[in-house]
Simulated assay, not measured.
Amino acid sequence: MIIILFFIFSWYFSLFFQTFFLHRYAAHKTFSMSRTTEKVFFILTWIGQGSSYLSPYAYGVLHRMHHAYADTEHDPHSPIYDKNLFYMMFRTKKIFTDILYSRTPVEARFTRGVPEWKKFDLFASSWPSRLMWGIIYLIIYLLFADNIWLWLLFPIQCLMAPVHGVIINWFAHKYGYRNFEVSDTSKNLLPVDFLMMGESYHNNHHSQGHKPNFGVKWWEIDPTFIIIKMLDRLKIIKLRKSAI
């Protein structure tokens, strides 16, 4: 039971920072925050994502490329150009890593305003950091996994952030419903997004990428947007009026 609770907590804790900080802030800048607050969220993202930490800078650039080239040969992750989700994951990882380590030139339009803390990103993305988190997870599982089937969760635990990404980037371009006719294959994967904190309203987002609220219909409740509004009221962040 402890492992199940730990896994569920990790799932949503990691997912929140991915959708809130990496996606809606780093990639789309639907709200602003101070430089100090930004660095705090870099660190919280590292804690939340642990061994599967994703650089906010590389994520922001990659995601902007996805919107610009959605479902074309230049899209960093598209089910149309990858024969299965594992090929897509490996191709995305290569492009992501090339951006992180400045191995490939990137157009200015994709980097403008994306938060960057290079020294921290290199540390948090390093193998010693990932190994440290992996050992922490291993100790927790050794102590509390009282049934062997619980170890099936361990690989997902270690690869949490990429798993979140592939659910949307693969399945939300194949299955679901559409509220908007857009030029790509994006779909809303879940009518009530209890699993992905608003991320599965993917068609809505591709149609209205500037909006921090990914829900459109009355039943499409976006829990991350609720938290964003709370943080705005607490003056931790500032919602852009043009984005609401």
Score class of each variant (00 low, 15 high):
residue 241 K to H: 12
residue 63 H to V: 03
residue 213 N to Y: 02
residue 202 H to L: 05
residue 41 F to I: 04
residue 133 W to D: 07
residue 79 P to G: 01
residue 134 G to E: 08
residue 60 G to F: 00
residue 185 T to R: 12
residue 9 F to K: 08
residue 226 I to L: 13
residue 221 I to K: 09
residue 51 S to V: 06
residue 16 F to W: 09
residue 13 F to M: 12
residue 226 I to Q: 12
residue 184 D to K: 02
residue 106 V to A: 04
residue 125 S to M: 14
residue 73 E to L: 08
residue 144 F to H: 11
residue 38 E to V: 07
residue 140 I to H: 00
residue 92 T to N: 11
residue 239 L to R: 02
residue 231 L to H: 02
residue 1 M to Y: 09
residue 114 V to N: 01
residue 28 H to L: 06
residue 187 K to P: 00
residue 126 S to K: 13
residue 173 H to C: 07
residue 133 W to C: 04
residue 237 I to T: 03
residue 181 E to R: 14
residue 244 I to F: 06
residue 67 H to E: 02
residue 45 T to S: 13
residue 175 Y to M: 11
residue 230 M to G: 06
residue 219 W to A: 04
residue 171 F to H: 14
residue 54 L to F: 15
residue 147 N to S: 14
residue 194 F to H: 09
residue 181 E to A: 13
residue 222 D to A: 05
residue 175 Y to S: 10
residue 23 H to T: 04
residue 123 F to R: 13
residue 238 K to C: 08
residue 174 K to Y: 07
residue 40 V to Q: 04
residue 121 D to N: 15
residue 40 V to H: 08
residue 181 E to C: 13
residue 218 W to M: 08
residue 169 N to M: 01
residue 201 Y to Q: 05
residue 208 Q to M: 13
residue 11 W to R: 02
residue 106 V to Y: 00
residue 96 F to H: 10
residue 118 K to L: 11
residue 33 M to N: 04
residue 243 A to L: 01
residue 119 K to G: 10
residue 225 F to H: 15
residue 11 W to F: 15
